[in-house]
Each structure stands twice: as structure tokens, then as C-alpha cells.
Design a protein around this nucleic acid. Structure first.
Length: 317
RNA sequence: GGGCAGUUACCAAAGUGGCCAACUGGGGCUGACUGUAACUCAGCUGUCUUUCGACUUCGGAGGUUCGAAUCCUUCACUGCCCA
């Protein structure tokens, strides 16, 4: 995979010649295919920023690259973890940056491909130094919420971190709980740890966004779900039925099938819900990406155009 | 051919004389989101308007009434039952 022969750069400003090519876009848009061709063109490896393709147990439902595709280009962060592992965006930032440092030793271009918004931002912008929440703290606050309700945790956060309480979505239990977890773990207000600073990376970043007209995107998502079902998604999900409460299985394509296995939904209904939830996920991705003014969008997406665009970008640096 | 029931916004479904541009759910749209994030949460959803508000709607046409999605007449269509 390592076709690069580009280590002839001066050590002084080598980092200026290093480029992270980010390929992002909504689920189902066709990132995998086009990025394989781009990777072959640029002779570069692919680092995945898909927070569900990390998990080796989730292949069909996450539309992970196939063995053949993995043979074509060296991939990282595909099937690198187990659904039983604890993993998060903060850890991913550290792992990915370390990996990129290594890869840039022998490549001028590395690609970051995926649709997990926060994970992409973690690599490009960095995240604040906030500790990972331990199990006891998590359980404690979850229990508080379950027993005492939303208003109680709202008031707790108002007390522990009034500044952050004013800023966050006060109806969103997950956000409140996380802030509380950090407050009680660190003994400091969560807002004190949030700098909002953007980390400086020692490589250039080019962000390419892929999109399609909404109806076309939705059509692709729908047919892809049908294909997943014929490929055996039900069987894949079934294997981990007893672990369905794991966060890693709270994932489109799996959680709906567990409703079916629990007897709450018919299979037909569950499949339709997978399609619907996938469409909604795609929309959420687009909403997030729309905020990022650094993305160069391609719609319709033409491989040749992207290659030409990236080539121009790289040589003009 | 006869009887009964029904026709409400994208779909489903309330409303049965003024509090109705019309409950609710779904879908759709828009947005928030720095660590469980393919999660979680919010707003909008007849038209025009930034707001106030104005305008046009509840199968079609006509009528009663100060006033109708709601009452009457008639036509059309749909469903069930009897022939």
C-alpha cells in the first residue's frame, strides 16, 4: 500500500508539505468508493473517522469496507476495537494524532474518511482536556436522573456550574448528565475545563464534503438497508442480542432489530425504522457539517474533479 | 337497485354551531451538540409576513345563521351490509 516515495523533504518545514485530506459526508453518500480511488491515486493510507466501523463485530450494519477493499488500500481504525471496549472521541483524538505523526513520516498525504462529526473535529480541531468519566460516577448520576427526574439534575447543574447551565441545552439529559459527571469528578465547574481553543496541527487539512440531492441520498440509504438485510444483518445483530444494552450497540441498524427480537416490532417495521433512522442521521450529519465553513463541497460528486481540486490545493501550498 | 357508515392539511386521526388554521401521532423540514455522539435534545410544518397580523381552507355546489369543518339540500367518491 505504501507507494509513497516522498521523504525527500527538508526537515525544517516538512510539516507544511504534509496534508490530511478529509473526506466527509452523510451516511450512504458513497464515501468508501470514492475514497478508495483517491487513496490509490495519491498512494496514501486511509484513517477511518467512522465511530462505528471501529468495531469489528459490526460489519454489515455499518457498511464497513470489505476484505477486498481493505486489500486495495491500507486502512486504520477499521475493526480496530471491540464493542466491549470503552472508547470515545477524546481517546480517538490522541490515538489518531499519534498515528498521523507516524504515517506522515512516510507519506505526504494521508486521508481521513468518515462521517462521525465529533470524531472528525477531534482530529482537526482537538478537544479540551477533560477526563474520561469513570463507571461509578456515571452510574451515580444516571441513578439520580432515573429516580429524581430531569428537574433535579437541572438544579444540580445550576448549583455546580451555573455558567454552563445557562449555555447548554437544558432539556437534554445526556448533556446535563455529562456536565455533572465532570463537575463531580474534578471538583471544578465543567465550564472551567472548556477552553474552546482550537489546537494547531502540524499538517495541512483539506476538507472535502460529498453530498447528493436529498431524494437521491435517501434512495441510496433505503436500498443499502435492504442490501444489508440480504447480507445477513439480522444474524449479525442477533449474535449480540444479550449485549444490546451496550452503548456501542445503540446504533442505527442494530437497535431497531433488537426491538424486533424483543417482540415489540415486526421485522418489516424494524427495517423501515432502520431506513428512517439512517435518513435522520444523515440529516444530522449535514447540519453539523454545514457549520464548518472550511469544507469544500462536491455535489454531484465527481471523482476526477475531487482529484484535480486536491492536486491544485496541494501544489499551491 | 336498497340500507348504513364515511370523505378534515403529506399520511393517520380528533373536532360535530363561535374558544378552529383546526387536538394528537407519524412523516417531512430546520436547528443545537467538546468525550456514551450512528447518541441525545429543540423548533417549525395552509399561504403571505421578521413580529403584530392579514388571507384562503376541513370532498364539490347551493342554503340556513350575526357566525358553519360542525346544521339542511343536492351531487360525486369510498367502505360495509342486503339484493
Amino acid at each position: 500500500m505504501d507507494s509513497s516515495d516522498n521523504c525527500q523533504l527538508s526537515t525544517v518545514n516538512y510539516q507544511l508539505n504534509k496534508t490530511l485530506l478529509v473526506i466527509l459526508g452523510p451516511t450512504g453518500v458513497g464515501k468508501t468508493n470514492i475514497s478508495l480511488r483517491l487513496a490509490e491515486h495519491f498512494g496514501c493510507p486511509i484513517v477511518s473517522s467512522d465511530s462505528r466501523q471501529f468495531y469489528r463485530e459490526l460489519k454489515i450494519g455499518t457498511a464497513a469496507p470489505t476484505i477486498d477493499q481493505l486489500d486495495r488500500v491500507k486502512h486504520y481504525f477499521i475493526a480496530s476495537h471491540s464493542i466491549f471496549d470503552e472508547y470515545n472521541a477524546g481517546q480517538y483524538e490522541l490515538d489518531a494524532i499519534q498515528l498521523l505523526d507516524e504515517l506522515f513520516l512516510s507519506h505526504n498525504v494521508v486521508m481521513l474518511v468518515g462521517g462521525s462529526m465529533m470524531y472528525i473535529d477531534a482530529v482537526c480541531n482537538g478537544m479540551d482536556n477533560i477526563p474520561t468519566v469513570d463507571a461509578e460516577t456515571r452510574t451515580f448520576w444516571q441513578k439520580q436522573f432515573a429516580e429524581k427526574g430531569l428537574e433535579y439534575i437541572q438544579n444540580e447543574l445550576k448549583r455546580l456550574d451555573p455558567k454552563h447551565f445557562e449555555e447548554l441545552d437544558q432539556q437534554n439529559p445526556k448533556r446535563i448528565l455529562h456536565a455533572l459527571e465532570i463537575c463531580s469528578m474534578t471538583g471544578k465547574p465543567y465550564s472551567d475545563l472548556r477552553t474552546g481553543e482550537r489546537k494547531q496541527r502540524n499538517f495541512n487539512i483539506i476538507k472535502v464534503g460529498l453530498n447528493r440531492p436529498r431524494p437521491e441520498l435517501y434512495e441510496r440509504i433505503n436500498t443499502r438497508v435492504d442490501e444489508m438485510m440480504t447480507e445477513g444483518l439480522l444474524k449479525e445483530a442477533e449474535q449480540f442480542f444479550q449485549y444490546r444494552h451496550l452503548n456501542t450497540l445503540n446504533t442505527v441498524g442494530y437497535k431497531e432489530l433488537y426491538e424486533y427480537m424483543n417482540g415489540n416490532w415486526t421485522l418489516d417495521f424494524a427495517v423501515n425504522m432502520i431506513k428512517q433512522d439512517s435518513r435522520r442521521y444523515a440529516k444530522r450529519q449535514l447540519t453539523w457539517f454545514n457549520r464548518d465553513k472550511e469544507i469544500y463541497w462536491f455535489e454531484p460528486m465527481e471523482e476526477e474533479e475531487v482529484i484535480e481540486f486536491v492536486n491544485n490545493k496541494i501544489t499551491s501550498k
